[in-house]
Design a protein around this nucleic acid. Structure first.
Length: 769
DNA sequence: CTCGCCAGGCTTTTT
DNA sequence: GCCTGGCGAG
């Protein structure tokens, strides 16, 4: 029975889901039912008989999104969906390479190097080329960017003013050669090589060759290479739909650009464009705020989200004294929400940088609220996991240089730097991989200066690895893991360490991941190979946080990882200058960098269905030292009238004094929580939620573990500090005023402290001496 | 060659 | 404030 699409979708969605052929560009705002359109489009293709499931490809960026898409298509097309190819860009590319490895000259068991691996390799090469190490990250970044644009070393023409460019080319060339010798492909290379297959010989990949219909999600985040891949496939396709939102392009630093989305109609003149602007997620206020923020950005496909929903509750704004109080306040507030019936899984705390999770975790821990962190610490990046994975990769592909380097002396085998570089020299001379060099005749190694002791150790290592490979050949991944641990005595090695037990547990988890993979493979009717398991390990973060108990937990994550998700109540924390927008974006003077931060704020705010809370603090610990913060320009840019109508809380933090005065009457009418005092063990949380007197902006609403001195500090009226006068500061002590910039709450005072030198301090943190 | 200590860098964000 | 990588002692 076909799905009654016209009942399930609004007219624009229906058009987007059913437009029959050729290129379709779907500009879909946040919460406009984008995934719904994609899944129904795929289902519609199959139901109308225009496509067989195996002719359909759907591509997204994150594994999370791919999984969700797959699950939701499965609901619409039970039993058929698994025949579709639903995948991330990178996994799709890996599959193409797997199938076309012969054409590409890659070994069957080629390994995928993550960013860490490639930086290490570039470092290695730079060392050999005598390049200063402070340039390594620059080169790594340049090479990565070139690969994002699918520019190979020989096509890279640095312009004459590009001083490092020449060496970039040199390093890049060497890097590509080394990857090839190691039988390895980096993230960028996956796309570049898939593009090569698509251009030259698409039939070399069985999966690729049969695709007739494609949907590409998050098209605003494709880089040049990915766009080229899509564009190359287009002529072979009966239909191609790209879906995206230029306002949610947040991966510029990774080479992404909304350019391909904005230019899509130019690239394919036959394109049918559809816009989805009706939002089904958030309240009117949240959308108004989001629209108000994002309209500051130039060059958009100006769309404006709207909703039939009501305005909803006011958006709350809180300014706290420091990051610990900010976390404590938000956690306490969320506790209240949970008490009044919000499910923990409907609460999310979003922040700009992972480092901001720490105070939150501590506060949640104290409040005994369960939480899960998405993103954060990645399972597969743990040292012991990477070590064992390196052994597994060597089983699949012994030539992998970075993996061999990683474990050749782990556990310790008395093979140190000296022996290793002699081996590398011998390998270079013989033009073979490090593994290949292990099999070189004694004389070749001796010629590289290696002593007999080193040669013996290497020989032993080579034998061990050879036996391990033989023992694992054709066996299931879980068996291979057991073999690795047993034959290398890796568990013994861990037991000697301080936190060895925890690391052993992680290896047990790795084994579990392998079992899970085998289970998945069985279900998908595919053989469970070590190669495919390793591919999963390389391309997925290994978040175990998607566990079944998540309904009982609140969620913590960066704004980036929040894209595509939604929650009833969202706390966006640290809405401050140098945080959101990031310090880097602020200091770079690069307008596009700031615009991207603004989009990030937009993404964050639009995650909330009903309750949105923004918080900021006056000082926070950055690298262990105190930094003074001011409210984000994204809030200060808001028209005062808008703020008065839709926000409650510490409005004085973001409104000019004049605008604040007229805001007060309205502010007084806002529902006002009872002032509370909560005693929880050693932590004292005191609230002062009463609206602040207009004349004395006491921004602090929560005080946590502060010295009495500091608590007593009150902003001096008018910030009137005359140069030459004496002042007191809680950290720096007594000092002399050198000058003043800004006015009101934004006033900064340059103060000279005899013991600390000159500092620029927000006026409210100073007292007259 | 290994171990342990210290300095310095790090924080954007992720496949 | 934490981690890594580099360096020096044994």
């Amino acid at each position: 029975m076909p799905l009654p699409l016209d009942k399930l979708l609004n007219p624009q969605q229906l058009e987007a889901a059913t437009w029959p052929e050729g290129p379709v560009c779907i500009v879909a705002g946040a919460g406009s039912g984008k995934t719904r359109v994609i899944t129904h489009r795929l289902a519609h293709l199959v139901e109308t008989g225009r496509a067989r499931p195996e002719e359909c490809l759907a591509v997204t960026f994150t594994n999370k999104a791919a999984r969700e898409l797959r699950d939701r298509v499965d609901v619409l097309l039970p039993g058929t969906a698994y025949r579709m190819w639903v995948s991330t860009f990178h996994s799709a590319a890996a599959r193409i390479l797997r199938e076309a490895h012969g054409y590409l000259g890659l070994p069957r068991g080629f390994v995928i190097y993550d960013q860490d691996d490639s930086v290490r390799l570039i470092k290695q090469i730079c060392g050999e080329l005598n390049i200063a190490k402070d340039l390594i990250s620059t080169y790594a970044h340049r090479i990565e960017q070139l690969k994002h644009q699918a520019i190979p070393p020989e096509k890279f023409e640095p312009d004459p003013f590009d001083i490092p460019g020449k060496r970039v080319r040199e390093v890049y060339t060497a890097y590509e050669a080394r990857l090839a010798r190691a039988g390895a492909v980096d993230f960028g290379g996956l796309i570049v090589l898939a593009l090569k297959v698509a251009r030259e010989n698409p039939e070399a990949s069985y999966s690729l060759g049969r695709i007739r219909h494609a949907v590409v999600d998050e098209y605003q985040d494709v880089n040049r290479a990915q766009a080229a891949l899509v564009e190359t496939l287009a002529p072979r396709l009966g239909s191609l739909a790209v879906v995206g939102d230029d306002d949610q392009s947040i991966y510029r630093w990774r080479g992404a650009s909304a350019y391909s989305l904005l230019q899509f109609t130019e690239t394919f003149p036959a394109t049918h464009q559809v816009r989805l602007e009706e939002n089904y997620r958030s309240t009117g206020r949240i959308l108004k705020l989001a629209n108000e923020i994002i309209r500051q950005n130039p060059g958009r496909l100006t769309k404006e989200l709207w909703t039939r929903a009501d305005d909803g509750p006011m958006i709350r704004l809180r300014q706290l004294r420091d990051d610990r109080s900010e976390a404590a306040w938000a956690v306490d507030d969320s506790l209240e929400a949970i008490r009044t019936g919000t499910r923990p899984s409907e609460l999310a705390f979003l922040y700009r940088t992972n480092a901001q999770s720490r105070p939150l975790e501590e506060a949640l821990h104290r409040a005994r609220i369960r939480y899960r962190i998405l993103g954060g610490l990645r399972f597969y990046e743990r040292r012991e996991v990477k070590d064992v994975v390196s052994y597994l990769r060597l089983v699949a592909n012994p030539d992998s240089e970075m993996d061999l380097r990683r474990i050749i002396n782990v556990p310790a085998r008395a093979i140190g730097d000296t022996t290793l570089s002699q081996l590398a020299a011998a390998a270079q001379a013989a033009k073979v991989s490090l593994w290949g060099a292990l099999a070189l005749p004694e004389e070749a190694l001796a010629a590289a200066g290696m002593k007999a002791a080193g040669r013996t150790k290497l020989r032993e290592f080579g034998t061990m690895l050879g036996e391990l490979r033989a023992a694992c050949a054709g066996r299931a991944p879980a068996v291979a893991i057991t073999e690795v641990i047993a034959r290398t005595a890796y568990d013994q090695h861990l037991r000697l360490e301080e936190d060895g037990q925890e690391r052993l547990d992680n290896l047990a988890s790795l084994a579990r991941a392998a079992n899970d993979y085998e289970e998945d493979a069985r279900r998908a009717n595919e053989p469970a190979t070590l190669e495919a398991f390793l591919e999963r390990v390389s391309l997925e973060s290994g978040d175990e946080n998607e566990g079944a108990d998540s309904a009982e937990s609140v969620t913590l994550m960066t704004l980036h990882s929040a894209k595509g998700l939604e929650f009833d109540a969202v706390y966006v924390m640290g809405v401050e200058e140098d945080v959101l927008p990031s310090a880097r974006a602020v200091s770079s003077e690069d307008a596009e960098a700031l615009n991207e931060e603004r989009r990030l704020a937009y993404v964050g705010f639009t995650r909330a269905r009903r309750r949105l809370t923004l918080s900021m603090c006056q000082q926070r610990l950055v690298f262990g030292e105190i930094r003074y913060g001011t409210p984000s320009r994204f809030l200060r840019e808001l028209p005062p009238s808008f703020v008065r109508e839709h926000l409650v809380g510490d409005l004085h933090a973001i409104l000019p004094r004049a605008a604040l005065a007229s805001a007060m009457p309205r502010f007084d009418r806002a529902p006002r929580p009872e002032p509370r005092s909560v005693d929880r063990g050693e932590t004292r949380v005191v609230y002062d939620d009463a609206p602040t007197a207009p004349r004395r902006p006491r921004a602090t609403t929560a005080v946590l573990d502060l010295d009495v001195d500091e608590r007593d500090m009150v902003a001096p009226r008018g910030g009137g500090f005359a140069p030459g006068s004496g002042v007191l500061h809680a950290q720096y002590g007594r000092g002399t005023v050198e000058g003043v910039t800004g006015t009101g709450d934004n006033a900064r005072v340059d103060v000279f402290f005899p013991e600390h030198g000159q500092k620029r301090i927000v006026a409210k943190y100073l007292r007259r001496a």
